[in-house]
């Protein structure tokens, strides 16, 4: 049983984790390298412009460290109020619309026809980015926060309905069965079997979406849909990096607050 130790192999090589065949592996490496060289080649950098920009970059870092909240406070507060109101209203409206669509998009409780309609609404809302929707809504409804509100509501519908539908599809079938066995109507089924199971996560997701909507509200202003993004855009255009720094810090601060409090609420709900 016990062999002499010198009879055992002296080396051991770890088997490759991906792509067992060595030629395939090396050609993939070569391909990746080739792409990398080509991709770097396409980055056409104007170094004198970059060098010139270093000074501005430094001013931005300084502006970020010594932000100026006061001199543009009127613009900042107006933009902030637009962003915050837009965020809240669009989250509420988005979720109210997302609940029926989400239920309709759950394979286990919705009829086939309804399922396909709801799934296509979700696919449409998710594949278009906020910015592109904002461009279209601004063209239709004019500049201002109303277009932003519509954009964010639309994006919220896709996000929330998809996750809600997945949650409903994952629920414990035995509970649905039990309620169904009592001879309940469809609405009672939703109310008694589905809602209690998905409610805590629905609340958690709503808070998460509130946070996302706020962050997005800072972006869509760039294409004219109102909010703090427009103020930020102006500040950067005028090279007022200390005001821009102040706006960015406010955004970071608000995101931190929503993240912290949503974590708290989620623990409380569950």
């Amino acid at each position: 049983m016990v062999d002499k130790i010198s009879s055992f192999p002296k080396t051991w090589k770890r088997p490759p984790v991906f792509f067992e065949s060595a030629p395939l592996r090396y050609s993939l490496y070569a391909l990746a390298l080739l792409w990398f060289v080509l991709a770097i080649g396409t980055v056409d950098v104007n170094w004198s412009r970059v060098a010139e920009g270093m000074d501005r970059g430094w001013r931005f870092v300084k502006g970020f460290l010594t932000p100026d909240f006061t001199s543009r406070w009127k613009d900042i507060s107006a933009g902030l109020i637009e962003s915050l109101t837009m965020t809240l209203t669009s989250t509420v409206v988005g979720i109210v619309l997302a609940v029926p669509i989400g239920i309709g998009a759950a394979r286990n409780i919705a009829p086939k026809a309804v399922y396909y309609v709801c799934r296509s609404i979700i696919a449409l809302s998710r594949s278009l980015q906020e910015i592109i929707i904002a461009i279209l809504f601004v063209a239709m409804f004019g500049f201002g926060p109303f277009a932003g509100f519509l954009t964010l509501s639309f994006a919220t519908i896709g996000f929330m309905s998809k996750l809600l539908a997945e949650d409903i599809e994952d629920i414990d079938e035995s509970q649905t069965e039990a309620i169904r066995a009592t001879g309940s109507s469809w609405l009672q089924l939703i109310n008694y079997a589905v809602q209690p199971q998905v409610m805590p996560r629905l609340i958690g997701l709503s808070l998460y979406r509130l946070d996302i909507n706020f962050r997005e509200s800072a972006v869509i202003g760039i294409v004219g849909a109102g909010g703090i993004g427009a103020t930020l855009n102006t500040a950067i255009d005028r090279y007022e990096f200390d005001s821009a720094g102040a706006i960015l810090l406010i955004i970071i601060f608000i995101v931190m607050i929503t993240e912290y409090s949503s974590g708290y609420v989620r623990r409380w709900v569950q």
Partner: peptide, 27 residues
């Protein structure tokens, strides 16, 4: 949290203003 709070479009806005337009700002 700072990196997460600020959308890439805003980072791009800043970088274009700092190092000029082009792929580098985007990357």
């Amino acid at each position: 949290v700072a990196s997460r709070s600020i959308n890439s479009l805003i980072w791009a806005l800043l970088l274009v203003s700092i190092i000029g337009p082009g792929l580098l700002a985007g990357i």
